[in-house]
Design a binder for these strands. Sequence first.
DNA 1: CTCGGAAAAT
DNA 2: ATTTTCCGAG
Length: 527
Amino acid sequence: MKTGCSIGEKPKGGGGYHFPDWAYKAESSPGSRQIQLWHFILELLQKEEFRHVIAWQQGEYGEFVIKDPDEVARLWGRRKCKPQMNYDKLSRALRYYYNKRILHKTKGKRFTYKFNFNKLVMPNYPFINIRPNGAVPQSAPPVPSASSHFHFSLDSPNEDGHGNPFTGSSSAQSSRESLNDINERKPIPSEPEDLHTEWRRGADHMSSRNTVGSAPHGLQKHKSDLMLPVFSMPGMYPDAHSPFAVSPLPGRGGLMSMPISPALSLTPTVFSYSPSPGLSPAFQSGSCFNFNPEEMKHYLQAQACSVFNYHLSPRTVPRFPNFMMPPPHRPYPPEEQQSFAIKLQPPPMGRKNKDRPQSSEEKRPAPLQLPLPPVKVEPVSDEDDLLSDEELDCPNNTEKVTSESEPETLSPHLDTEKGHTFVRPAAPSWPQFSTSTAKFNFPKECTEGSANAGEKAVKDSPIETAVVEKKEDSLPPKLRLKRLWNGDRQAEMVEDRECRKVSCIINGCRSSELTVETNAVAAAADS
DNA sequence: CTCGGAAAAT
DNA sequence: ATTTTCCGAG
């Protein structure tokens, strides 16, 4: 069933196989956590179908405007099977992100918010650019600020043996992930101290982990094992303003798309930690991409540094599953929509049944099945498709149809095939991830899914979930919040500034300059 | 519209 | 842990 990822579904039908529970659990759903709102938003932002509903705002990186709040809410509600969802609620959820520092509100602009990319590391960015001469994508994604506190030796020559950076890095990667889990701070740290501390820790870990092959698994939980590389897909919405933008180069047509992906697939967070010695050769030589190795290197460093310096949460940097992989053309099969049943949620009793017993009735008579709902039948608009798509985790849905027909809508990553593709020649991509991930980290679910049907590709994004890490910051009690407003705020500003600066640098400067700039930034950060 | 506190739900 | 619901305030 489609539920692809949904947790409880087991393949009962066909084979009736029973895979171990863990196979279904997937980290994807820690707990039961499904897609998160910001993932969803990002998802929508990636698809052109929703341009009219929500779109990146030109001008600021990461800033987006909800053009049709009701629609977005509707979509979100659909995704979460919360028919009662509305913008008011959705916006509340969005506001919670302020504290988490995932989002900001752009004051003065209605329905306009901005992602804090300092916190959300962009998975695909730089490399993408790929213009032969190093042209940069118009939209420079906000790159986390860089600092040169440490130097990861990304440039160190030599690699682990194969010359293939990919190999061997996986362990590092995973360890790193774990690392993050632990380090991840919960409360929003804002103090420099924290930064420093974290920073230190990071360094320590790094050093310990320097051996490529050794994976320090001191920690348990490795969601990382499941990480999958996310490749950007052809269908991706190449919005210039999108921080994720993959530069839509003219060439995008056939060839471009594929090749690019590998690069995109990496999460900076991950590779940044790479131990070192290593990657350069690959970059320099065989790369299929045009990016400038130097730039990449710097970028990576920047990423790494930012991770350490800014408490980037790995979880925040999920490898967006869906993210990059929009379905090529038909996002979701029509059937899906049809099959999609809305599960009417019982009237929200909200908190303590408050006094308003049945308000919901007025609005939604709520046909549970909605076959012919008088009220709203969600027509299947493009958008709808999208949404419906993905996982419908609704319990109801889950069961329902086995519809799965949905081929690969969103999460292609899994395709082994693709993985191969990327890996293939000398793709320089970022190592750690691609290959290794492909090989070892495929999430069970995904893997299985793929295996089963090759085509199916798991519609859901198991990955997404899988990938998403759990620990994040937790919300601080009020005190903390208050504090945030004061100190943190400032910190953010700084971050932002740096971020921008770096972006500029990346976009327009050469590596040497970059270095300088970076240092400057770092200095600033220090102060 | 936007902000958050609260409490309940997932 | 995050999101949904409600809601009073600005």
